[in-house]
Amino acid sequence: MEGKLRELQQKASEEIQRALSTEELEKARVKYLGKKGELTEVLRGMGSLSAEERPLVGKIANEVRETIEDLLSKAKDQLKEKELQQKLEKEAIDVTMPGKAVKIGKKHPITQGMDELKNIFIGMGFKVVEGPEVDTAYYNFDALNAPKNHPSRDISDTFYITEDLLLRTQTSPVQVRTMEKMKPPIRIISPGRCFRNDTPDATHSPMFHQLEGLVVDKGITLGDLKGTLEVFVKHFFGSQTKVKFRPHNFPFTEPSAEVDASCFKCAGEGCSFCKGSGWIELLGCGMVHPNVLRNCGIDPEIYSGFAFGMGIDRLIMNKYEIDDIRLLFENDMRFLNQF
C-alpha cells in the first residue's frame, strides 16, 4: 500500500512537471486528487488494512496528498508566471517610435515675460494696475511734467487722435490716474501696450510694451528705489547680476537715473551683445517729481515716491536673443511654439 502511494506520488510529480499549461495541471489534479482520482482509488483499499497499519498509511496518504497539492500549486504559479511572460513578450512594441504628442498652446513670449515681472513685483507688495491705451495729452504729458515743447509730444513721435487724445507713449498715465484715485501708500506696477510713431524695422515697432512701477509713501528714498530695483534685477537675471545707477534726466522724475545690468551673456566681461561695455541698459527711473505729485493732489512735503519704467519687448529680445522685433508681432506658429 505504502509502495503504491509512493509510486502514485512519483507518477503525479512527473506528470505535473511535464504539464505545459494550467489546463494540463488541472487535469493532473483531477486525475490524482479528484473525487474519482487515483489517490482516492488507492485509499479505498484502506479497508483491507490492519488497525495498526491504517493510521500509518493514512499519514502517508496525507503526506502524499499534501506533496502533490504543493507541487501542483508551485507548478501552477510557475506556469502562470511563464504564460504572463509569454503574453508580455508578445505585446512588446517598438518603443523607439514617436510618442503621441498632446498639443498645448503657449502664451506669447511678451506675456510670459510680463508674467515673470509681475510675479517679482507682486512678491514685493505691488498691485497690478491697468489703464486705457487711448489717453489724453494731460495724462500722457502735462500731468507728468513734460514741458510743452518736449520733442516727445511731436506728431513725429506720438500718434494723435485729436489734439488732445493720443495713443499713450508710456504706461505712466496709469500712475497719474492711480495717484488721483488712491491715497498713499501706493505701490503699483502698470504693464501694457504703448505706441510711438516709429516705422517698423528690426529694432523699432510702432507698438511695444512697457512695465512701469510707482511707490508713494512717507519717507520713500532714492535708496529704496535702488533696493527695489536691485531685488528685481537679481530675480530676473540671476543673483550674480550687478546693477549700475547712472544719473539721467526725465521730466517725470527728479533725481532721475538709468539702470544698467551687467551683461548676462558675458557677465560684464564685454562681448558683442553688450557692444563691449559689459552692461545692458535696462530701465529709467527716479524720484517722482514734486510737480507730478502735486498735479495728482499729493503733498510732496509729506510724501515722496519713486517710479521706474522699462520696455518689455527689448527685454524679451535680449533674453531669447531675438534679433528682429517684428517677429514678435508676426505670430508665426513656428516662432510662438518655441517659448
Binding site: I122, K127, D217, D224
Partner: peptide, 13 residues
C-alpha cells in the same frame, strides 16, 4: 540700497 518701509500694502492682481 534699502527696501521701502512704511504702511502695509497688499499686492496682487
Amino acid at each position: 540700497p534699502t527696501m521701502a518701509r512704511g504702511n502695509i500694502v497688499v499686492g496682487g492682481k
